[in-house]
Design a protein around this nucleic acid. Structure first.
Lengths: 159, 159
DNA sequence: TATACTCGGACACAACGAGTCTGAGTAACG
DNA sequence: CGTTACTCAGACTCGTTGTGTCCGAGTATA
């Protein structure tokens, strides 16, 4: 039960992209967070495939958020980077072995998977309740409002 | 974000152990579920290490639940088999790169990890709200009460 | 006391994630 | 309009974790 480490990078990148309405290259984002640019590119591609960010090619290209930060939830980012499939997969153990339940009697999921999926739903709902905009607001509150504007200047500026 | 498949086996085994107050060997549990006995043994060892089940050695040995099924939650089993660590690990990205937040200013977790951990807490609470006894009751309700008693007879009997 | 059956940990194999690299495409610039 | 330099996108390699198996230590039984 280990989440892909790229989720953290992707979330921070989304927060940073909130501060800039012009394309930001993957290299800049990687340097800002001091992580491998090649690997971060992979996470950004996943976000682009999911339609959360838009990629702009060319000399001054990069990535831009497609939607408003208020309409991007953490669940969107997690599912995009970490995969949409459920973490718990039911292999239908009850249909195997000497006491196998006949397949036609398995109209409803088995109690075990029901409980596991209910817990997973709770996790999903908690993630869906928080948006990128909420995170950006929290960052402003903890690190001070000057942090994001400084980053924005650094992103658009050259150095 | 993929959960260990052994969790499903462990949960089903706990439900089955509810029906028998005498030790059940790993081989019997494996045959009942039609899974590898060697690998199932590993999951049962994890449960034993966590103190959820007690191992009895010797000729007619096996595993028995240590506590009442009502006091064993799904969270206990998941943490025992899948590992107790959190699924989301914060690598403190904010302390790296040109705009690194100084370490002494990081008294509270960063907003990203706060949100992720809150979601994980929701998942934990949902798992902790369900017990093995609840699952056994559900199995009785769906498969009929004769299922578990039949399994119990098969476990204690020879064949 | 001998025995046969049990669990327990140590040992290979496979799959997924992590990380890197080179190539295709496009906007800017001379 | 051609060149150029910069961008993203996909294919490739490596390490780690999970999966599956095996043999040895220990104990209740006969």
């Amino acid at each position: 039960m280990k989440m892909s480490g790229g989720v953290e990078w992707a979330l921070h990148c989304c927060v940073v992209l909130t501060a800039s309405h012009t394309p930001v290259s993957a290299a800049k984002l990687a340097e800002l967070h001091d992580v491998s640019s090649s690997y971060l590119a992979k996470q950004l591609q996943a976000l682009a495939r999911a339609g959360l960010i838009h990629s702009v090619q060319g000399k001054s290209g990069g990535y831009v958020l497609t939607r408003a930060p208020e309409s991007i939830t953490l669940l969107d980012v997690v599912r995009a980077v970490d995969g949409p499939g459920p973490s718990f997969v039911c292999t239908e153990i009850r249909q195997r072995g000497p006491f196998a339940t006949p397949a036609d009697a398995c109209t409803t999921p088995c109690p075990v998977s029901r409980a596991m999926w209910a817990a997973e739903d709770a996790w999903h709902q908690a993630l869906a309740a928080v948006t990128i905009a909420d995170l950006a607001r929290d960052v402003d509150a903890t690190s001070g409002p000057e942090a994001l504007v400084g980053i924005q200047a650094w992103l658009t500026g050259g150095a």
